[in-house]
Design a protein around this nucleic acid. Sequence first.
DNA 1: GCAAAATAGTGCATTTTGCTCAATTTCGCG
DNA 2: CGCGAAATTGAGCAAAATGCACTATTTTGC
Lengths: 158, 158
Amino acid sequence: MQTLDGTDLRLLLELAKDPRRTVVALAQKLGLSRNTVQARMSALESRNVFLSFERRINPVSLGYPLLAFISIHVQQHKLGALTDSLAQIPEVVEAFGLTGAADLLVRVVCTDAEDLFRINGKIQACDGVERTDTSLAMGELIPFRLNPLLQRGPRHTG
Amino acid sequence: MQTLDGTDLRLLLELAKDPRRTVVALAQKLGLSRNTVQARMSALESRNVFLSFERRINPVSLGYPLLAFISIHVQQHKLGALTDSLAQIPEVVEAFGLTGAADLLVRVVCTDAEDLFRINGKIQACDGVERTDTSLAMGELIPFRLNPLLQRGPRHTG
DNA sequence: GCAAAATAGTGCATTTTGCTCAATTTCGCG
DNA sequence: CGCGAAATTGAGCAAAATGCACTATTTTGC
């Protein structure tokens, strides 16, 4: 997966400003022809530059105002099965395998403290889980952003 | 911010399947009139159900294949200033204030291990930082998803 | 059961899309 | 420097989608 060039980045920046911009409007804004923009967009699509739309949905709107991160210590050989178990819990919205102190970091959304308690129990009940450490997110200090990296320009093209 | 009803959820589900679906196609798919879908979409927009488009951009495509989570212990009263400092580091893509062991959880993308080392140093150099714990994400076991929660339906309407 | 809100249906001008084709420019590389 | 491939441009055109408005009809909350 090769890196993107400056034009791609400018496209992405404009999209970040307004995701509903039309191809025509983008072409005009960037001083490119419509064909070029359309080709670029298709290329971005097929290169999997765009992640799932679900990422743009606000969990708060869905009725899950609470966010928590749960670190999990796992019995190593059971990691595969555990991933499947975690995938069965709807409130688990994201999970990573980690180096360092903990083995797994799980992102969880929930309706309230009681709900979090319940979900945490569910996780602890999964086969392979040795210990969990739950941290409630008190504030979104820096909401997800890629803008600074987009503006910095392409990384050493090649 | 009131919760969404079943129709909104079905809309979001369809959008998750294919974000580029037109209003017309959505209306047809859901058995609604175009007017209704258009009104719903506007309502979702103005209710801030949609988060920034940046969330859909793949950092790997941008040339940042590595992802890390850094826990930070902070001198409490310096949290505000620290947030500003962290915001100045482009590779910091997300940050949360936490309860529990650590005070801050920071999500960082980088080009390679050396890059991560450099960024970690930058964070440690910030005023207010007492200690950091870095974990490299070895695998995206469960990529971000909201689908299970969407399919579950609306949370106790009211 | 009433009033307000949501939905459906219709219409129309304008814009956007998807597609193709040929000419031109830019770029990689020997 | 110069060749050939790739990218970009401009044009055209039919089909589709959008934005807007207006009026019934249905659904909903109280």
